[in-house]
Design a binder for these strands. Structure first.
Lengths: 131, 131
DNA sequence: CAAACATATAGACATTCCTCTATATGTTAA
DNA sequence: TTAACATATAGAGGAATGTCTATATGTTTG
């Protein structure tokens, strides 16, 4: 039977993304533990944005936004690129993927020694999902 | 072409789990922003455990563990069940699933108006995944 | 160069977080 | 009922967080 390894929280082999350490994951979740930063992640996952574009969407001062961007880039979840006087931000899709894998891993209940493969409750792939 | 909706971060219809609000998600990520709590989540996702079982795995005092369990249960990520003198803890799989969906959603780059369905980088389902 | 623009840093301040000790509450067992 | 066990609560203290104002740094433009 084919199952969706991703949905089971099993890192897909050959993808090159390694399981995050607990401390890295804690840092990434801390970066996501603030509503402002959640909105920023959502924004920069769609399209590259400069700080001034992001600032317009919030009622924050420029230094406060800079503080949040530093937390996001230090965690690795957001990439910064300097373009003249602008800083352009995008999501780091690899880190985001690793964090999704990590979250799936620690919330999966198939980690015991005798855990068998089975359909994950959150996967729509009714057994047809390649594993 | 069939794609994996789950891996795309699109809530699977008919599952009954609603997209979390930003503030709920921030609270859940805050619950996960501490290494001790990450380990606890990993532990209780495998098997129901009482506080004393969990305490043995850490170099913490009992009140400190109680503090962490309160944060985890208040967030909804962990369920508590009183059994005589013991508190038994398990992962709330529904909330965990909603959080995985939320994370997939805000880190997906397919949210624009003209976004097309396509294979997600973290899904092993090579187009065979039912959507 | 000087002015305007974009961003970062420094420092202050209130709040929250994580840990502890001490103690309280509730449950089981002798 | 008393002792032992399991957990929760109160309160303290130091560290971290999120916000601001003021200022510094670097870039573009007239």
């Amino acid at each position: 039977m084919f199952v969706c390894l991703f949905a089971l929280g099993i890192p897909v082999p050959g993808k090159g993304d390694q399981m995050l350490s607990n401390s890295d994951a804690a840092l990434l979740f801390k970066a996501l533990s603030d509503e402002t930063r959640l909105k920023i992640v959502d924004m920069v996952s769609e399209v590259e944005l400069c700080a001034c574009d992001i600032l317009e969407e919030f009622e924050l001062t420029q230094p406060t936004l800079s503080y949040h961007m530093k937390i996001l880039t230090d965690s690795g979840l957001v990439q910064a690129r300097k373009d003249g006087s602008w800083m352009r931000y995008t999501l780091n899709a690899d880190i985001a993927g690793s964090l999704r894998d990590y979250l799936a891993q620690i919330t999966a209940d198939n980690k015991g020694a005798n855990a068998g493969r089975r359909q994950h409750s959150n996967c729509s792939c009714q057994g047809t999902c390649e594993g």
